[in-house]
């Protein structure tokens, strides 16, 4: 009779071992019988303990500003709006004056409105990939549920703006690469400024 019930008994043994593994005294018993044990319960109790996420974890984008919120890197080129697959970005801009000429702040144009609809966003990160100015990056906050779809789920420009130090804090390696790239661009742009006036050599001295 043993061989007909044998597979069932083996299965029951595996479950019993898992059961004992979840208790410290059970692990002691199993080690005493020299059976290899795993670490105990694999489940963590959210929200008391939260899982540590990888650095690259992405959920919803945010706009980056340096120093003050009006020094945002975005110039309203609308490339991310065009490339976003589910079309969840809505940009109104760049800001123009009454004659229709673009206004500039800190030497750049800026958007009037920048809305991203969280209920549509796919977290695909294509907006970050295509932005030529490193103005939009992915945030890793995911506890963003709300009870109202239009007021709380559509993030306007104010809600989206976050400082560059925040970006460096949540994604150090990526921020380091971005900062390097931006510094290199600035260094290339600096010699384009008019060189200081060299003193003219006196004629025929």
């Amino acid at each position: 009779m043993a061989w007909i019930g044998y597979g069932v008994l083996k299965g029951l043994g595996v479950t019993l071992k898992t059961f004992l593994e979840t208790y410290p005294w059970g692990r002691a018993v199993l080690r005493g019988l020299s059976i290899p044990v795993a670490d105990g319960l694999f489940t963590i109790q959210y929200p008391d303990t939260k899982q540590q996420h990888a650095e690259r974890f992405r959920y919803f984008p945010f706009l980056v500003y340096d120093e003050t919120p009006d020094n945002l890197r975005c110039v309203a080129c609308k490339i991310c709006e065009q490339e976003c697959p589910p079309q969840c970005i809505h940009i109104v801009g760049p800001a123009k004056d009454e004659q229709g000429r673009p206004l500039k702040a800190h030497g750049r144009t800026f958007p009037v409105e920048f809305d991203i609809d969280m209920s549509i966003c796919m977290s695909c990160r294509i907006c970050v990939d295509v932005c030529p100015f490193d103005a939009i990056e992915m945030d890793n906050q995911y506890e963003l549920s709300a009870s109202d779809r239009y007021e709380h789920m559509v993030f306007n420009q104010e809600k989206l703006l976050k400082p560059a130090e925040y970006f460096q804090q949540i994604k150090p390696t990526e921020a380091a690469t971005v900062d390097q790239r931006l510094a290199a661009k600035k260094a290339k742009a600096a010699p384009a400024a008019p060189p200081p006036q060299a003193p003219k050599p006196p004629e025929g001295s």
């Binding site: 996420h53 990888a54 650095e55 690259r56 974890f57 992405r58 796919m122 977290s123 695909c124 990160r125 990939d129 992915m138 390696t173």
Partner: peptide, 24 residues
């Protein structure tokens, strides 16, 4: 998968020409 691509299931990682970003 999360370590490499940023997302557990909807990875969006492999691209024509290789992968989107090198491994961390």
């Amino acid at each position: 998968f999360e370590l490499a691509s940023g997302s557990r299931m909807m990875c969006n990682y492999v691209r024509p020409g290789g992968v989107r970003e090198d491994l961390p």
